[in-house]
Amino acid sequence: MAELHIALEVNGEQREADVEPRTLLVSMLREDLELTGTHVGCDTSQCGACTVLVDGHAVKSCTMLAVQAEHTAVTTIEGLGQPGSLHPLQQAFWDKHGLQCGFCTPGMIMAAADLMAHNPEPTDTEIRHAIAGNICRCTGYHNIVAAVREAASVMREGAAAPATNA
């Protein structure tokens, strides 16, 4: 099958790849762009481990063709924050022990990032609804909910406070 040449923005950088039409976005991210933070946890679009942001919206990268992402802006866990410059969600997952094996974590954090964009002050019920498409087998979700709640609080404070270096 002829490969297609596509260009898109990934984590703020212009990237290009040659992919088969059947290549899933998650495969392109992991195999071609070597961004292995996005994981595959199932084959039926149920688990959410592959969640990334496409043009700011959480999507399952296992349920989108790479060609469908052409000219979009994709954010993966690697683009959300890195050690030393963690996103408040990453920091809160760390502080609140919101992960154990870590496999579902990138997708979970990206789904939570989508929630943060729409709802700066989510209730626990809203948090649980927002991550209903992401399965975690380790934590029982207890500390994940606590982490998202904490991150929302930190982000609200950050938004309310005048810009400082703090």
Binding site: R30, T36, I77, G81, P83, W94, G102, P106
Partner: peptide, 21 residues
């Protein structure tokens, strides 16, 4: 104590079997 494992997992730098090439 916060886990020393976590920085790699929360930033996409965990290395699971399928990440190895």
């Amino acid at each position: 104590v916060r886990r020393v494992e976590d920085p790699r997992f929360i930033t996409g730098h965990g290395r699971y079997l399928d990440d190895i090439k």
